[in-house]
Structure formats: C-alpha cells, structure tokens
Design a protein around this nucleic acid. Structure first.
Length: 418
RNA sequence: GUGGGCGUCGCCUAGCGGUUAAGGCGCCAGGUUGUGGCCCUGGAGACCGAGGGUUCAAAUCCCUCCGCCCACCCCA
C-alpha cells in the first residue's frame, strides 16, 4: 500500500473511465448548443467573498465546507464550491448586462466541498451547469428545465423524476418562516437534535429532515405555496402551464427548499425513481437577488447544476454503448537496428491521420502480436532487417483470422490502411 | 461532526493461532530461432494497512492509530 494517495474524497479519472466521462461531457455541450448556451470558464479559485456574500452564512457550504486559504500576497481565496456565484461575478465584471438579454451561459468543471465522502458525494466534484441571466419571465425557468430534461434524455436518463416548488421572494419566505416557527414552536422539544438546532439557525431546513419526516408536526406543516404573493403565484402558475404544454411530467413538492440563500421563486430537483441517499442528480432554481449580493444592479437569473459523478453513477447501472477506443496500426520493429525505419513508417501513417501504437524493439514477434491485440489494432506492420533496407513493411489485418499479409511500401502505407 | 462495516500481490478472492501465505484475472517469458487471439509451461509481483500487546508461535486474538466504504447531517 503506497503511503501517498489522492486526497480524501478526490479521485483519479483512469483511461478506462474516460470514454463514459467524455460521452457525458460531449452530450452536455451538444445539448447546451442546441439551446444556444455558450461555454464560460471561470477560475477554480475565487475571492472568498464571491461565495461568502452570496451563498448564505447559515448554509453548510459556507459554515463548514469551503476550502479557504490566503495566498502569498495575503488575498483571501476559496476553491469554488459551486458555479453560479462565479458565473454571476463574471457577468458583472465583464458588463454582460449591456449585451442582449438574457445572456445564456454554461460551464463544466470541478467544484470543491470539504465534506465527509460517501456514495455519490466527493470533495472534488464535477458539475455541468447552465445560467440564463437577465430575464425574469417564467419562460426562462422553463427553458432551463427543458434543457436539463433534454440532457438527461440524451444521456439515457429520461426516467429521472422532476419535482418543483416555488419558494417565493425573500419577503414571502420571511412571512412563511414566521408561520413555520409558530407552527413548530410547541413541538421543538420532541424534534431531533438536528432539527432543534435548525429551529434556531435555519427553520426551512427542518422540512427536508429525514429523521423527522414522520413527525406529526411535520405532517401537518403549513405549505409555502399558501404564502406566495400575487407575483410569485402568477409566475409559478405560468411555469407549470408551460411545462404542461410541453408534456413535461413533474410533481409539485412544497418541501423542496434549496440549500443556498440566493434562490427565489422556482426551485426544482431531478432524482432517480428509487430515491435514497445522495440521490439528487441535478437541481436548479431562480436567483433574482444574487447579482445584487455581489454589488451589482438587480438582475434576474435562473439556472441549474448537475453532478457529473452522480450522472455516471446512474449511467453505470444501465447498458450504455460506449465503444472501446481502438488503434489503426501497430508497428513492430524486430530489433534495435530497424527501430528508426519503424518510426518512419509510424510517422507516415500518423501524417495521414491514423492512430498508431509504436511497438518498441527488444520484444519477440509473439509479444508484438499480443501487444497489437491488446491495443485492438486494425493492422500490424512488421519491420525487420529485410523490410527496413527497402522502406517497406509487412502489413497484416488483425480483425480476420488467417488474414493475408502483404508487403507495402512506406509511400503506400496510408492508402493501404484505409 | 455522529454512527456502522471493512483493510491479504495491480484487481478479485482463499486462509481465521503452527502453511515456503493459496488461487483466478492481469503482466512478463517460453512452447512456435519472423507471425496474434485458444491451449500448455514457467516467472515476476504481498514487509498480510501502520504501530503496540498477548502467546513457545499472530495474516489469524486484543488495543491504538490510519485509510476506504456505507448511513446520518448536508448537498450535485
């Protein structure tokens, strides 16, 4: 057992996982393009205030999960725990408010949260996310949900369940939190310790406690939907109407509250049918107050983020057609003396766009064939003394049994590989 | 942060007080002195997670630590 390992909760992505990973990434970028969302890459590190100001002091992300450090110049930096605040910062910094609104952006990259790892939860996690900034209409919410739904469908995860809710504006939540507090107050003593703590810090969080889910006080809890104001109500109604028109199936779940403070109005989650554990594959919401928290003008926005590892987790349970990578040609030099000639042959093939695995001298014929086999090569080119002096190779197809082998000059190698 | 399970070659697993620590996959080589996939033979590869203790004897029992996994919390 080596004494140096990858940091806790962080993982190496091995070549054999690459194909599936690339499939997910390519699909995400392709679907984003279908909706005209453009890729933006922000630094992995931000001024810590980008998150401290926006995410919410009571959130676990800020209170215990951030990787914080000071650099040599004394700047307070954070490894980004999520993408939205960083994208919003870039929107502001680059004056994107003066572009045609809304601005449609997407990102793909690693996020960092110092948390105890478990199934589907990592300290370095990859997210794909989408942000539609600068438009307050329900159409924007639905466009983002539709993009996310399309993505899952294209990935083969079309059976994920969508649950949506509206948590109103900050004012709505103030009134609701008050009602929630007075509803729960008489029962505090009988709630779990965690919920008792949350009663003081963040009452909304009690709603998604697994421990107290069966508690009578929670069964009879008031619904936030009854506290929406007229504008919230109209917005949510329109979102649902549009989803219905598109035949998107969803379930309204008044228990959904997002972990981050900047959310407003529409919030949603996608999870597998047999939910449990760290099951949420992707979640999103509207964040009309976020850019103000960063010191900008009031700017509406809506987006989602989805966890790549969680997508992979769900993908691994089902048959996916991801073809194994293969090589066009394996070049087998028989001895040191012909190594240069073999390298020339390889260069010719590569120049024509063929993938070539170079065998190195010092191995026997059988070893070369086995290596070519394991590279899943279409052809093997044998270069011995006899061939090297005449600039030719013995070329043999490997896919068929008892294939005919023929002599091919370097000059004709590319066409022979076609 | 809390609770539970587990750590034996690169991977999977056997062994559960006395074995040169076993097998499969993979890797390397030979059988075929320049021709693959199958088969056969051989080889390399493990201070049995670390440290301490019990014992004539510890991979096996006990303690501590570390790591991984799972659940809670929280979240993607």
């Amino acid at each position: 057992m080596p004494d140096l390992r990858a940091p806790r909760g962080m993982h190496d992505l091995l070549p054999e996982d690459e194909a599936l990973w690339r499939f997910v990434r390519d699909t995400a970028e392709r679907v984003a393009r279908l909706f005209d969302y453009r890729l933006i890459s922000t630094p992995i590190v931000e001024d810590s205030h980008v998150f401290l100001r926006t995410v919410g002091d009571e959130s676990d992300i800020v209170s215990k999960e951030m990787y914080l450090f000071d650099d040599r110049g004394g700047d307070h930096l954070a490894l980004r725990p999520e993408g939205t605040a960083a994208v919003a910062r870039a929107y502001l910094e680059h004056g994107m408010a003066s572009r045609p609104q809304p601005v449609r952006l997407c990102y793909f990259g690693p996020m960092f949260r110092y948390d105890r790892p478990q199934a589907g939860r990592y300290r370095q996690l990859w997210q794909f996310g989408v942000e539609c900034i600068g438009d307050a209409s329900p159409s924007a919410d639905v466009e983002v949900i539709e993009l996310q739904r399309t993505l899952y469908e294209e990935l083969g995860l079309g059976d994920l369940k969508l649950r949506i809710n509206s948590i109103g504006t900050a004012e709505t939540r103030r009134r609701y939190v008050e009602a929630l507090r007075s509803h729960l107050e008489p029962h505090v003593a009988t709630l779990s310790r965690d919920s008792q703590r949350r009663f003081e810090t963040n009452v909304l969080r009690i709603l998604d406690s697994k421990e107290d889910a069966e508690h009578p006080a929670l069964q009879s809890v008031p619904s936030i939907l009854d506290y929406l104001d007229e504008g919230d109500e109209a917005h949510f109604t329109e979102v649902r109407a549009l989803l219905d028109t598109l035949h998107v199936t969803y379930e309204v779940d008044p228990r959904i509250v997002r972990g981050l403070d900047y959310y407003a109005r529409t919030v949603w989650e996608f999870e597998p049918a047999g939910a449990g554990g760290q099951s949420t594959v992707g979640a999103g919401g509207r964040y009309d107050g976020l850019i103000e928290l960063l010191g900008g003008p009031h700017t509406p926005g809506v987006g989602f983020a989805t966890g790549i590892e969680r997508i992979m987790l769900n993908l691994k349970d089902r048959p996916t057609a991801v073809e194994a990578p293969r090589v066009d040609l394996y070049v087998a030099p028989l001895g040191e003396a012909v190594n240069g000639a073999a390298m020339h042959a390889a260069r010719r093939a590569r120049a024509a766009g063929f993938a070539v695995r170079a065998g190195f001298p010092g191995r026997g014929m059988r070893a070369h064939f086995r290596a070519a086999e394991s590279a899943n090569a279409r052809f093997i080119a044998i270069v011995g003394e006899n061939e090297a002096t005449r600039d030719v190779v013995q070329l043999k197809p490997l896919d068929v049994t008892d294939a005919e082998q023929r002599e091919v000059a370097f000059d004709h190698l590319a066409e022979a590989l076609r």
